[in-house]
Simulated assay, not measured.
Amino acid sequence: MPMYDYACTCGTRFERMVPSWSSPAPDCPDCGATTRRRPPSPSMHGLAAPPAPMTSAPRSWEGLNNGDRDTVTHWRRAVEARREFEARHPEHRQRRDAIAAHEGRFERTPLTYRELASRAATSGDANQAAAEASRDRRTDPRPRDEL
């Protein structure tokens, strides 16, 4: 016998094993009113995986296929789905810092405003701190002939 989900107008939801799909819906166990069959839950349709994390989203214009409309639309929807997921499940929320620079030397490791502020705390000059961060990212362990 298959198991089906039922809902009542009083707010009660329950599962029951019934002989077949064509069997009449059972009465509500709380108020005795007639119930209606609910559609199966989304997990039965394969939507149990969480949306892609924000870290997988592109960080540059080139990553968006130079502004291709379909690519931008895809990532906008993916980010909105992730935000809705994080709003429902705060334990999966990812820390996101505002990005000060993400191109050139900062393409692989973006410069966040948090890092910029900590670097500029001693000198008080954000331009000098950004130049220092760029110099730190310039060092590449590979020899010049391999680049």
Rank of each mutant, 00 (worst) to 15 (best):
P42H: 11
G11N: 14
A101T: 00
E84L: 05
P24E: 12
D68I: 00
G11M: 10
I99M: 08
I99Y: 05
R108E: 02
L47W: 12
R114F: 07
M44F: 13
S56N: 06
S43I: 10
A52D: 03
V18W: 01
A98K: 13
R93W: 03
D30S: 15
N65D: 15
R16G: 05
G67C: 03
V18K: 08
I99H: 04
P29T: 06
R96E: 14
E84M: 04
P50L: 04
T55W: 01
G104M: 01
F14M: 08
T35P: 01
S22I: 10
R114H: 11
R13L: 06
D68Y: 00
G63E: 08
A48M: 09
R59H: 07
S60W: 04
A78E: 03
H45C: 08
H102Y: 07
T73K: 07
T35R: 05
D70V: 02
A81R: 11
R36E: 07
D30N: 15
S22L: 14
R76L: 14
T34C: 09
L47S: 12
L111D: 02
R95I: 09
T109K: 10
P51K: 08
A81H: 04
D68W: 01
M17C: 12
G63P: 03
A81G: 04
S23T: 14
T112V: 02
T73S: 07
L111E: 02
E107D: 11
R59Y: 04
F106D: 01
E62I: 05
G11A: 11
G11H: 12
M17F: 11
P42K: 11
R69G: 01
P90N: 13
P24H: 08
P110M: 05
A81I: 02
F14Q: 11
T12A: 10
T71K: 06
T12R: 10
H102Q: 13
D68S: 03
R83D: 00
L111V: 04
L64N: 06
L111Y: 01
D70G: 06
E62P: 01
L111R: 02
H102A: 12
R108Y: 00
P90S: 13
P29G: 07
L47A: 12
D97P: 00
P19Y: 09
A57H: 04
D27G: 11
P90R: 12
G104F: 00
T12C: 07
W75H: 06
N65G: 09
S20I: 06
N66P: 01
E84A: 11
H92A: 14
S23I: 00
T12M: 11
R59A: 10
A81Y: 02
R82F: 00
A78N: 02
A52W: 00
H74M: 14
P90E: 13
Y113G: 06
R96L: 08
A57S: 10
W75K: 05
C28L: 03
D27M: 10
E62W: 09
A100L: 09
R76D: 06
T71L: 04
R16Q: 15
Y113Q: 04
A100R: 06
F106Y: 02
S41A: 15
H45Q: 14
T71I: 07
E15W: 07
H45K: 12
G104T: 02
T71D: 09
A33G: 15
R105G: 03
P58Q: 09
A78C: 06
A25R: 07
S20V: 06
